[in-house]
Design a protein around this nucleic acid. Structure first.
Lengths: 143, 143
DNA sequence: ATTGAAATTGAAACTCAATCTCAGTTCCAT
DNA sequence: ATGGAACTGAGATTGAGTTTCAATTTCAAT
């Protein structure tokens, strides 16, 4: 059922790392999150839910999830990293408005074609990717 | 002749900003740079060349050049922003090796297609874009 | 030329995301 | 149980990038 958790467990085992109570809490919370989030967002989640976890542990767990291929790291020009779950996501670009900062997604299967070509012609492996288009959204343009 | 400088001058005029000695030094240096560079790289350039310019001025001038559309801001997972000249560049992706950190480029005209589609279907304007693929390069894989 | 408003510079202080350190704790294999 | 390895988290640290502000430069209007 919980595919992501089982992938995480396999990853940890392969690296001789442990699925601790903290790692389980943090990853389960992330695996039920639909939106983009920053590390500080997650720190706040656990602060508010009483289950105080050290911010360092949250940083480290997210780094593990990125390395395991379960999270993509993305940059929205906001001064900190953001993350999104990567499993079974349709390929998409991120549109960031440089006026209002709003982020939207743009589905495009062509991105997969490009990545496939990179994989084949450059012998690049284990690829995660991020297409970011920065511009002015239609709402801001009207002003 | 110096197309980029004239675009920069037009941009400054439109914004009622001045082409100062410092801005001219910094932009000319950038307009003769082929490689990716960080702000600190530029700070060092001017430190070594004796023409000490305040780092704040360099930050601000680069921000102007980005806003003028003459530089693209790119992220190589290195903890600071990098920049590349954008005028008349063939569209390309950045491949970043997560082991050795090496950055290579991958030309792909398909990227323009995707951006065109974003422009039209999302009414997104004034777009700059960055396609980054993070993975393991063929050299690191062999180890 | 002189004046005054606006833009500019740059040193220093500051912010804040992210990392490092290290002492104390937990877990696992023997 | 015991030793070694992994783990946690508070606090200190780093470093890119921004803000502040006093002093300077520029430009348009007189």
């Amino acid at each position: 059922m919980n595919n992501e958790l089982s992938i995480f467990m396999t990853y940890l085992e392969k690296k001789s790392l442990r699925l601790t109570r903290q790692r389980e809490y943090i990853s389960q919370k992330i695996f039920t999150t639909k939106k983009h989030f920053s590390v500080e967002d997650m720190v706040d989640v656990f602060k508010n839910n009483g289950g105080a976890l050290g911010r360092v542990t949250i940083y480290r767990t997210i780094a593990l999830l990125v390395d395991a291929g379960l999270l993509n790291e993305i940059d929205f020009n906001k001064g900190c990293k953001y993350y999104e779950r990567s499993l079974n996501r349709a390929s998409h670009a991120h549109l960031v408005c440089k006026r209002c900062g709003k982020v939207t997604e743009f589905a495009s299967s062509q991105l997969e074609n490009i990545v496939d070509k990179i994989r084949v012609t450059k012998a690049f492996e284990d690829i995660s990717y991020d297409f970011k288009a920065t511009g002015v959204c239609s709402a801001c343009k009207r002003k």
